[in-house]
Write a protein that binds this DNA or RNA. Structure first.
Length: 607
DNA sequence: GTAGGGTTAG
């Protein structure tokens, strides 16, 4: 009830700046013939109303005979019948005669329901409308709504519910479009539709639109709440726009809303996953800020940190956080999975298995993610027998292997040349009705590319597309890499362009692979062009980019340019890795060229 | 009635 009151008072504000538009509506309304359908029909309105009220549909059908069911609808409206009764007749006649009523009547119905404050009816109606509507664009819906009535509150409420209906029915794009149009019409939306819209946009990775909706909400004075801010912060974090996420955190404080444990967890996770150099320090700083603001870290906070340290190849710190967590909180399956995976990725299989036992001791059941992490650990150590034993163990625990389980094992068998076992698993996957996905095909394509069997790789690519699975950026990376290794970098570049056409965004790996291809062919000019293209796409050269370019220049005897690139790299604060060291050693120093890395002696000493 | 955490393939 309170919510309704506050939304009607905000409608008063909305009226002020949309008066010009309202005048247009009124003018147009007088031009269209909303209720001028001939009414000389052989039916009685009171009887019809009675039959609808009692839901005596077959009698109603008999009574109406050949009457124009649309004319009945018009008469019901004109007689000022109960909106819920009209709604019943509207839905029944639409289903019964398998027709779609004109948009004009739909809008009239919505208005009468809104005026009667039958909001849940509107919600349900719009849900069905959005699901079945293929005919009416947002443009015509908005147009008709404002023609049929100039009640601003009603229209705002209806459009608010329309946006929500779009989002719930996974028509996010249309929901976004309606949000935009609502701004043009001056209809005031609420967080009830804006938050779900933002949430859907985040899930679809449309962060540009998330930023737009957020800015518009501020501009249109739609009062954002804690959820709004947390959703936006999450969206920004997911694409690594951490500074903007911090800005939004400050915005919310300025609006008098304090970040809670979810907001802080989101930010910490953002830094852990996309924070770049020294990310764990930054994550830790947020943790400290959180505690200072009296927001208590929970299991999820610790899980995020544990995973963060593991991915940062700092399992020791992850274990420390894990011990600290145990002081006051209970680790859950996700905690164990993160740590087990971290240990597995760092080759510490014994400790990982020990943790699995610890879980069991605590009554925590390992799930398929636990098994997948352990299987992956054994696979990476070429311990295929142990991996297969774990795989066979999955069913004993009442679990089912999933696509990731199969992909992990198929990939490992392929990499270790155990083709028979790989094929057998693929068949077992099909038998158990686990659908191979794009990643499964990527494993096979990678396998054949490694074997230099491009024909078979292409056959699998084709098979994949026949099955309705789409090539993803990783598929392209594999194909580009294979072509580059065949000395066909030009052809590989065509695939890069194909990616754009398919709406796939190439990653650093894609560009670096192609650059490496050109460098191997000695075509430095083309390689540098790829770098330019990459930077145009907003991707900065990373350590791999420099490794590739430095090596490419060395191979061509352009040691001076290679040296300049090395300096440029260090100036940008990029940390040399083992590959950089090997290039400098083998391609420069062993050939009698001493790299001149002014001011970076300290950095180079870390080689 | 809306927000946060774990597994594969380059």
């Amino acid at each position: 009830m309170l919510k309704l009151l506050s939304s009607s008072s905000s409608c008063l504000q909305a009226r002020v700046h949309v008066q010009g538009h309202r005048r247009t509506c009124i003018r147009l309304c007088s031009l269209i013939s909303i209720s001028t359908i001939p009414s000389s029909q052989p039916f009685s309105l009171p009887i019809i109303s009675e039959l609808i009220a009692k839901q005596h549909w077959s009698e109603l059908k008999t009574h109406l005979k050949d009457s124009n069911f649309i004319a009945v609808l018009h008469q019901l409206f004109d007689a000022g019948a109960d909106p819920v009764l009209i709604l019943r007749y509207f839905s029944w006649s639409q289903n019964n005669f398998n027709v779609t009523h004109p948009l004009e009547l739909t809008c009239r119905l919505l208005h009468s329901l809104a005026n009667a404050k039958k909001y849940s009816k509107i919600r349900a109606f719009l849900d069905g409308f959005v699901r079945n509507n293929e005919k009416h664009s947002n443009s015509s819906i908005f147009h008709m709504l404002s023609m049929c009535g100039n009640q601003f509150c009603a229209n705002s409420v209806i459009i608010d519910m329309l946006v929500l209906a779009y989002v719930k029915n996974m028509k996010t794009r249309l929901g976004f479009e309606a949000f935009q149009r609502a701004g043009d019409y001056g209809f005031k939306l609420s967080v009830l539709s804006c938050n779900p819209l933002l949430s859907a946009l985040v899930k679809e990775n449309e962060i540009g639109y998330v930023e737009y909706v957020y800015k518009e909400m501020v501009r249109r004075r739609i009062e954002a709440d804690l959820f709004t801010f947390s959703i936006v912060i999450n969206g920004l974090c997911k694409v690594g726009k951490l500074n903007k996420a911090r800005d939004v955190t400050n915005d919310m404080k300025a609006w008098g809303i304090s970040p809670n444990v979810v907001t802080y967890n989101t930010l910490i996770d953002g830094y852990c996953k996309k924070g770049g150099l020294g990310k764990m320090h930054k994550a830790d700083a947020i943790l400290k800020e959180m505690v200072a603001n009296n927001v208590h870290p929970n299991e999820i906070t610790f899980n995020i940190l544990i995973d963060g340290f593991c991915k940062d190849e700092n399992v020791a710190s992850a274990v420390k956080v894990f011990e600290e967590m145990k002081q006051g909180l209970k680790p859950n399956v996700i905690t164990y999975n993160s740590l087990i995976n971290g240990l597995c990725c760092n080759g510490k299989l014994d400790e990982a298995c020990g943790l699995q036992d610890e879980m069991l001791g605590l009554g925590l059941k390992p799930n398929i993610v636990t098994y997948n992490a352990l299987i992956n650990g054994f696979c990476k150590k070429k311990m295929m027998k142990e991996a297969k034993e774990l795989f066979d163990d999955i069913m004993n625990g009442g679990l089912m292997p999933n696509a990731i389980t199969y992909n992990t094992l198929i990939d490992a068998y392929c990499k270790h040349g155990m083709m028979e076992e790989a094929y057998a698993l693929h068949n077992s996957m099909l038998e158990r009705r686990v659908s191979p996905n794009t990643s499964t095909f990527n494993c096979w394509i990678a396998c054949f590319c490694r074997q230099g069997n491009m024909e078979l790789a292409r056959k699998f690519l084709h098979e994949m597309e026949v099955r309705g699975l789409k090539a993803d950026p990783i598929t392209y990376n594999l194909l580009i890499d294979a072509l580059c290794k065949e000395g066909e970098s030009r052809k590989a570049e065509r695939l890069l362009n194909e990616m754009f056409k398919k709406g796939l965004s190439p990653s650093h790996v894609t560009y670096n692979t192609l650059m490496d291809g050109y460098c191997r062919e000695g075509n430095l000019k083309a390689a540098l062009n790829v770098r330019l293209q990459m930077e145009k796409e907003g991707k900065r050269a990373n350590i791999v980019t420099y490794n590739v370019l430095i090596k490419g220049h060395c191979m061509k005897g352009k040691l001076k340019v290679a040296n300049e690139l090395l300096n440029e790299m260090l100036e940008k604060g990029l940390v040399p890795n083992r590959t950089t060291y090997e290039i400098v050693k083998e391609e420069m120093m062993e050939k009698g060229f001493l790299p001149d890395i002014e001011g970076h002696l300290y950095n180079i000493s870390s080689f």
